[in-house]
Write a protein that binds this DNA or RNA. Structure first.
Length: 687
RNA sequence: GCGAGAGUGGCGGAACUGGCAGACGCGCAGGGCUUAGAAUCCUGUGGGGAAACCCGUGCGGGUUCGACUCCCGCCUCUCGCACCA
């Protein structure tokens, strides 16, 4: 990856957690706080290693259309990558030859309405071009913005809009008018070009800023081609203190007047390009993935520094034959200073090494990688865990990958699940595997909430451990409870009563088998087609399907139904035997301990997980008679039994003869009869 | 504000592709077993009504013989993102 430029060392402002004493990636900061401990993150400038995930931004976006992942996760990733297509264009500075503010805009169609330029307070041109008298104030303003941003936490509730006239003047390249250049606290140096063209009439943010500082507001887009419509719209917007941000038609925009927004955007961009003052540009919200961590636990970064061969401190990769670099076996506590220094730096015997190029003394990189690096590819290591030459062999990768169904939590949508996809694309590029997407289907399971209905957390003290149920009722009950309570992808509430309910179910199955034993011991094999056998085989079919679809809750209720039917059964002992055996087999994935125990009680010695899954006998899955609902004008009026072989006419006649139905049909004209085989008959009558 | 998802009994939740709404479980009520309890078993359990029946899947319309399911317009809730130009 180093050779391919996919990992590089940079000096950058990083997110730093002062409690965990480590750097965090952008994805690992939630609302300005550390994802792990919730501490407000501070900004620090530390050199670090970073993965060039941004080089994959478009591939990460494209791939989303080819995988079967929940819409929610797909949307979050799309959002996070945040591709934005627009135009970069220059606003020349008046009185400073050759200097210009480059701005990024997605709304080139509104350029005739750009009445000022807003730059980030620390934009490089500001200090350089601002009049002498203003420099100090500008500097103070930039300082203040930086401090507030830190206090509020980046991305937290936005501070009030604040700005400052720099005294610099620029020219709107399309209107030719002189406009002021302001600095504003809402313009981010790290996004786009660090400066924007402000169109207060058509951008809410610019509008609020312009109102506050009394800057001109110029309308250039109107909702229709008609003046009157525009007047009405404008009045309403002024009343609501809103900018008109929709697309529409241009006016007061020179030769572009009358064009619809979409067309104008392209035409204006082309014109800017023709004049050599701008070109199309794409921006992403996604940043490169900073992976250096000042921790012990993590994969060592396999780089050494040699003063002689590498005076710029760029790093020399550890040669393949010396990989992997493993962590030294030390007592971690002894090297922790609590000051955020990498613990490994304190381990002289490990840090000091020889340079792979010149053989002279060298130092190892003492920082370790983000542990998300490990989780990005562990799935593939399972394919070939004993391979000590490669992460895994290509043959195994081709045989197994991609993962068919991956189960995880939605809270990792832009963390693990993003890195996971990126890493797979890199592995593909390195020809380690042939796939570009690691998991075809993603299922996001819900979380179990505490007894108070709140998300479990140690600080709230509402954590319920599965251990509690396991100790009191056993692991089978614990499993059934969790699976039964709600569909897999839904959050569920903890419920002590439901736990007991599952325990009772297992008790019923246990007693069912034991009370059946004397009856079925001497029984012949199951034969014929009685109700219980039909039910047994239908249940096989249903449960198999439900398990494949991960509908564990309904699979369990199907088993409950079968168990209830078996308990009531008065017929053939052979059918009962078959039923309880099947019950044990179908229960095996859900409550394995009890299922195997029962299997052995039934006189079978195998381990259930080694047996073939039961198969339904097709002849027993079909009924030879059905209960059919009878409606009159769409209302349920009766129920009749008809043979499976009955034709439409026969079904209709049987239904009409039913005494209850006949009462409703009496004296009416039948206008239409709808017959849905095996389900219902509907008589449409009048009069 | 933007994006995604969800609204069904007292509760968790069922209902394949438009075809008997409420499966299964919990809870509750009544009963059996027991000196009593625990456990367990049986019966009942959407609302109204004595009954025949009527009403009922967030609200209002629509399509259809028939709508929890499809269409249009709202409301509420949950989650995610949010000064990204």
């Amino acid at each position: 990856m180093l050779e391919r430029g996919l990992v590089y060392r940079r000096r950058a402002k990083v997110n730093y957690c002062p409690v965990d004493n480590t750097v965090l990636a952008n994805e690992q900061v939630e609302d300005g706080r550390c994802w792990r401990c919730g501490t407000l993150v501070i900004e620090r400038e530390i050199p670090e290693w970073a993965f060039r995930i941004t080089a994959y931004a478009d591939r990460l976006l494209d791939g989303l259309t080819r995988i079967d992942w929940p819409e929610r996760v797909v949307a979050m990733q799309r959002n996070w990558i945040g591709r934005s297509d627009g135009l970069e264009i220059e606003f020349p500075v008046i009185g400073a030859r050759g200097k210009a503010f480059r701005v990024f805009t997605t709304r080139a169609d509104t350029i005739f309405g750009a009445t000022y330029v807003a730059a980030a307070p620390d934009h490089p041109l500001i200090q350089q071009l601002a009049p002498e008298a203003k420099r100090e104030q500008l500097h103070a303003f930039a300082e203040r913005v930086r401090r507030t941003a830190k206090e509020v936490g980046e991305g937290a509730q936005a501070a009030d809009k604040e700005g400052f006239d720099t005294g610099i003047r620029a020219r709107n390249p399309f209107t030719g008018k002189e406009i002021p250049v302001w600095v504003a606290n809402f313009v981010l140096a790290s996004y786009g070009t660090g400066a924007v063209m402000s169109v207060p009439a058509h951008d809410q943010r610019d509008y609020e800023f312009a109102v506050k500082y009394d800057l001109p507001i110029k309308w250039v887009i109107r909702p229709g081609e008609d003046d009157e419509v525009t007047q009405v719209a404008a009045r309403k917007l002024v009343e609501e203190k809103k900018a008109f941000t929709d697309h529409g038609y241009l006016f007061d925009s020179g030769e572009f007047s009358g064009m619809p927004s979409e067309q104008a955007r392209l035409t204006i961009a082309a014109e800017a390009q023709r004049r050599g003052i701008g070109q199309p540009a794409v921006n992403y919200h996604l940043r490169d993935w900073g992976v250096s961590r000042q921790r012990y636990w993590g994969t060592p970064i396999p780089i050494v520094y040699c003063v002689k061969c590498d005076p710029d401190h760029k790093g020399i990769p550890v040669p393949d034959e010396d990989l992997p670099v493993v962590l030294p076996d030390i007592d971690v506590k002894e090297v922790l200073t609590g000051k955020g220094e990498p613990p490994l730096a304190k381990v002289a015997s490990w840090v000091n090494t020889t340079c792979p190029t010149c053989g002279g003394p060298a130092r190892r990189e003492a920082e370790t990688m983000d542990t998300f690096v490990d989780s990005a590819w562990y799935f593939a290591r399972y394919l070939d865990p004993h391979n000590d030459a490669l992460p895994f062999s290509r043959a195994q990768a081709d045989r197994w990958l991609p993962v068919d169904v991956y189960v995880g939590g939605p809270e990792h949508a832009v963390l693990h699940l993003l890195y996971f996809r990126f890493w797979t694309m890199v592995m593909n590029e390195l020809a380690l595997c042939g796939i570009t997407e690691p998991a075809q289907k993603l299922v996001t399971q819900g979380i179990v909430k505490g007894r108070d209905g709140e998300k479990m957390s140690k600080s709230k003290g509402n954590v319920v451990s599965p251990r509690e149920i396991i100790d009191e009722y056993g692991a089978d009950t614990a499993r059934l409870f969790i699976l039964f309570a709600a569909p897999a992808e839904k959050d569920m509430d903890w419920s002590d009563e439901q736990v007991q309910g599952q325990h009772r179910f297992l008790g019923r199955v246990w007693r069912l088998v034991h009370s059946s034993l004397p009856k079925i011991q001497a029984a012949k094999g199951a034969e014929g087609a009685d109700d219980l056998r039909r039910r047994t085989h239908k249940t096989i079919l249903r449960v198999t399907q439900q398990l494949e679809r991960l509908q564990f809750n309904t699979a369990i209720s199907s088993l409950m139904e079968l168990s209830n039917a078996a308990a009531d059964w008065q017929g053939e002992a052979g059918s009962l035997r078959e039923c309880v055996e099947v019950l044990a087999q179908l229960l095996a994935p859900l409550a394995p301990h009890m299922a195997n125990e029962l299997w052995h009680e039934l006189g079978r010695s195998e381990e259930l997980s080694t047996l073939h899954w039961p198969e339904a006998d097709p002849s027993l899955v079909m009924d030879d008679a059905y209960q059919i609902a009878v409606q009159v004008n769409g209302k349920l009026r009766g129920e009749v039994q008809v043979a499976a072989t009955a034709g439409e006419a026969e079904i209709r006649d049987t239904a009409a003869r039913d005494p209850k139905v006949a009462g409703w049909l009496h004296g009416k004209t039948i206008k239409k009869v709808v017959v849905i085989p095996k389900r219902l008959v509907n008589f449409v009558v009048a009069g």
